[in-house]
Design a binder for these strands. Structure first.
Length: 469
RNA sequence: GGCGGCGUGGCCGAGUGGUUUAGGCAGGGGCCUGCAAAGCCCCGUACGGCGGUUCGAUUCCGCCCGCCGCCUCCA
């Protein structure tokens, strides 16, 4: 059984299901006012891996991740560009999904948009006002954190210590500096929606509260996001839910930072910050492997060097797929638990011990680095057995490696050698002839020519093989 | 000020109270190869510092040093 770290308790605990066999995840998605950066990529990959692993474990998974399409920054950015908010968000939502597809992140089962849920948010705020836990000011409606049981749970600090650390000016009409806005009263030029207490727009990520509870129901299993969302973003979501008498998420998961030079990545740093840049400059699978190589709660360094290391690891996996002519495990979507005991190719079944080791690592709060080590051990075993002529063992290890790596969402680029054009094909023919005639100088020259054209050249019993590099 | 995280061999990065050990990348030696490439085999004996607990600590405890993060809208 999967055990996960819970940000609310700081402890690793078994995933508690509402209903046997089913699990629901809500992951805070992007605010679409700009292109995604590496941090967005990381959380998407982390929770995609979780989702795939839950499916691999045999659970029926419902995965919801929102698009926040109304927010201060959206309004500002749209105004700067002289376009409407919806024009702006349409553009960046498109960029978002392109990046997700490139990373092989599965589309969520539902992707609710904040603007489609404003009515429900109005109901929630109305309910909170009725219950007397929220109050109106000239600016809007605020939640009174003193009325919320356990406020500070995710910050893991008491209300008192939070209050003492508050660096904001004790604002306007707020009763407590920690009270936060649920509804912002209308300002000229801003999008507004009607509400009984006055037109305006939603405040503190009320959409996540409404959408998660609407789509997944009370007490859904996992709520996740980046570490920076823990407080105050998620704290405030929880506060709204709890204050309205609802049971919110059972587990809170937060992934660590992407760092650059040891510091939290920020938009002003480095040129590797854009997710699209990374995808363009490197094998998109490299980022997944990079994310997988470290624990999801640890910071990761994304540098040209670490990306290159990941690509080198990928090359090793691809080489395995090529050697054993393995199918891409992702071709049929997420890898299902049946993959480990089926015998689809009519070849040896998978390595049970290795699979068990893999599962043990993953069940331990997603020790993907350990799980990956199991996979690489299998790669070596497969090659080693094949070198020794033990094809049955080799095939079993290779198949197991493919299934397990597929369970993590890593695609194998086995047989895709790139299109071999006529010029290259001709060079290959001439090289084979030269080699047959033992004209080594000529063969070497032809190899150099192929390499200069971007081909990776390998000799084999069947003759010269080339593929794109 | 409050709260939290981290410091592992050239690099990245797991893990553990003690028998052999992560794993990847890079590097050295070897096998294979016409030469390569790929693959395989062998090699580095690492855990910030100082104490403590212990038969024994990188792993537990304390202190120190260094780095990083959160404390109102940042994944």
């Amino acid at each position: 059984m999967l055990r996960l770290h819970d940000s609310a308790t700081g402890e690793v605990a078994p995933l508690a299901l509402r209903e046997p066999g089913k699990v629901s995840l809500y992951v805070c998605g992007p605010t679409v006012y700009d292109a995604p950066h590496l941090g967005h990529g990381r959380f998407s990959l982390v929770f995609d891996v979780l989702r795939r692993y839950l499916i691999f474990s045999g659970l029926e998974v419902t995965y919801v991740s929102n698009i926040t399409d109304i927010e201060d920054k959206i309004i500002e950015r749209a105004a700067e560009r002289g376009i409407t908010e919806s024009e702006l968000t349409a553009v960046y939502e498109g960029v978002w999904w392109d990046a997700m597809d490139a990373l092989d992140v599965l589309r969520p089962d539902e992707t609710p948009h904040a603007t489609a849920y404003v009515e429900r948010m109005v109901e929630l705020v109305g309910d909170l006002l009725e219950r007397g836990v929220a109050y109106e000011t000239d600016d809007g409606v605020y939640l009174s954190v003193n009325e919320v049981p356990g406020y500070g749970l995710l910050a893991r600090q008491s209300l008192e210590s939070l209050r003492s650390g508050a660096r904001i000016e004790a604002a306007e009409d707020k009763r407590s500096p920690l009270d936060f806005v649920l509804w912002k009263n209308a300002k000229p030029g801003e999008p507004t929606w009607d509400a009984p207490w006055g037109a305006g727009r939603p405040g503190w990520h009320t959409e996540c509260v409404v959408m998660s509870l609407d789509l997944l129901g009370d007490g859904f299993e996992v709520h996740g996001g980046g570490l920076d969302l823990m407080f105050p973003h998620h704290e405030n979501e929880r506060a709204q839910a709890v204050a309205s008498g609802r049971e919110f998420a059972r587990h809170w998961m937060h992934n660590g930072w992407v760092t650059v030079g040891g510091e939290k990545m920020s938009k002003s740093l480095g040129n590797f910050t854009s997710l699209s840049d990374l995808i363009d400059r490197s094998d998109p699978r490299a980022y997944r492997l990079l994310v997988l190589r470290s624990h999801y709660r640890s910071p990761i360094e994304v540098t040209p060097e670490t990306v290159a290391q990941a690509e080198a690891g990928l090359a090793r996996l691809d080489e395995l797929a090529r050697r054993f002519d393995l199918e891409d495990p992702l071709d049929q979507g997420p890898v299902l638990p049946g993959a480990v005991d089926s015998d689809a190719a009519g070849s040896a079944a998978v390595d049970g011990l290795a699979t068990e080791a893999f599962v043990n690592h993953m069940d331990d709060d997603l020790d993907t680095a350990g799980a990956l080590a199991v996979v690489f051990d299998l790669v070596r075993q497969a090659n080693s057995a094949a070198d020794a002529g033990d094809d049955a063992v080799a095939m079993q290890s290779a198949r197991t490696a493919a299934v397990l790596v597929g369970a993590l969402g890593v695609r194998l680029a086995g047989s895709d050698n790139g299109e071999i054009d006529d010029t290259a094909a001709d060079l290959v023919r001439r090289r084979d002839a030269a080699r047959a005639a033992k004209e080594w100088a000529e063969a070497d020259a032809l190899r150099a020519e192929l390499e200069a054209a971007g081909w990776l050249v390998e000799d084999s019993a069947e003759g010269t093989r080339i593929r794109r590099r």
